[in-house]
């Protein structure tokens, strides 16, 4: 069975959805602002004769119709990183700021870690974790190639992540770009559809709930957690949010993304989910001619309306005495 069949009831235009899923995706690179500006990258591409097309919703992204994103000077200089367009979205939703403490719970191979470091102007601390030691070498390679100096790399099971090796005990923001069944990547890797099983969906959903729960716990009151996957499966998306809403002190909040999205779904097969999951965003391939994606933004309960931790004033008092 093609797993895409099961999502036909969720989309408005089944034919357009299926046709988009069958089309290959172009190579895309993201400008690494630590090393270069989008205009410098454009100049270098033009001088070298590399064909590129802009992406209308993000000035740092370029489509390379001839492929080979690593075979040019801007790549060698760490000015660009090959990254699928939709993969940029969770970093935009997370909106990390210079100087903050940020956790990337499932970080390898580092596309989002390096995007986070860039958004932080390479200042503050991004803790890039992955449980797979082999994939960590790709993460480290990418972070170094892009000149990231504010990352700590850890090798833990994110579900039981310990902050003990760190110099602080809570994050301002956390990204859970979770391992998933990946049907949304079928345009660049059609094999995911052949390898798909419902057992895997159910198994990985348990892992996703564990990681997202830990991310909420490890983030300070008022802080931000972003949850993303590249699957359409509600079991791995809205059901995970519903579980965490019921068990952790957090809420799903509204946010904006710069392309066309559909709201999270509240019903799937014989399940119903918390109404708040409609604030999550589904990205279907036919809407913006991209890969498929899911992204939700959560706020950890407590803190004030600006997201400040309730105990920050107390710390100052303690220092004064």
């Amino acid at each position: 069975m093609n797993p895409l069949d099961r999502y036909e009831s969720l989309v408005d235009d089944v034919d357009a959805f299926r046709a988009a899923c069958d089309r290959p995706l172009p190579s895309v690179v993201r400008t690494n602002g630590i090393a270069a500006s989008p205009s410098r990258v454009r100049e270098a591409f033009e001088e070298e004769g590399v064909s590129y097309e802009p992406v209308d919703w993000h000035d740092g992204l370029f489509r390379l119709p001839d492929g080979n994103p690593g075979g040019n000077w801007p790549y060698v200089h760490g000015w660009t990183h090959g990254q699928e367009e939709v993969s940029v979205l969770p970093g935009l939703a997370l909106d990390p700021q210079p100087g903050e403490r940020v956790w990337d719970a499932c970080a390898a191979p580092g596309s989002k870690t390096t995007q986070i470091a860039d958004a932080m102007d390479d200042r503050g601390t991004v803790v890039a974790n992955d449980n797979n030691l082999g994939r960590l070498s790709a993460l480290r390679h990418n972070a170094e190639r892009l000149g990231v100096t504010n990352a700590i790399v850890t090798n833990q099971d994110a579900r039981n992540f310990s902050v003990k090796p760190l110099a602080f005990d809570a994050f301002d923001r956390a990204l859970v770009d979770a391992p998933c069944s990946c049907e949304g990547t079928c345009r660049k890797n059609p094999d995911v559809l052949d390898q798909w099983t419902l057992d895997h969906v159910h198994g990985v959903a348990g892992i996703q709930k564990g990681i997202l729960s830990r991310a909420v716990q490890a983030t300070r009151p008022g802080g931000t957690v972003v949850y993303s996957t590249c699957t359409f499966a509600p079991e791995e998306n809205e059901a995970v949010l519903d579980h965490v809403l019921a068990n952790e002190a957090c809420e799903v909040v509204e946010f904006d993304l710069p392309l066309v999205t559909d709201p999270g779904v509240t019903e799937w097969e014989d399940e119903t989910y918390d109404e708040a999951v409609t604030r999550a965003k589904r990205i279907y391939p036919h809407r913006n001619d991209t890969g498929g994606f899911f992204c939700a933004k959560l706020r950890v309960d407590g803190g004030d309306a600006d997201g400040n931790s309730p105990d920050e004033g107390v710390d100052e008092t303690e220092v004064a005495t």
Partner: peptide
């Protein structure tokens, strides 16, 4: 290694900044 963030000393992690 050069690092531009907060780390405990010593740090038993896989990487602290870049080589």
């Amino acid at each position: 290694w050069i690092f531009n963030g907060e780390a405990s000393d010593p740090s038993e992690v896989e990487a602290v900044g870049m080589t």
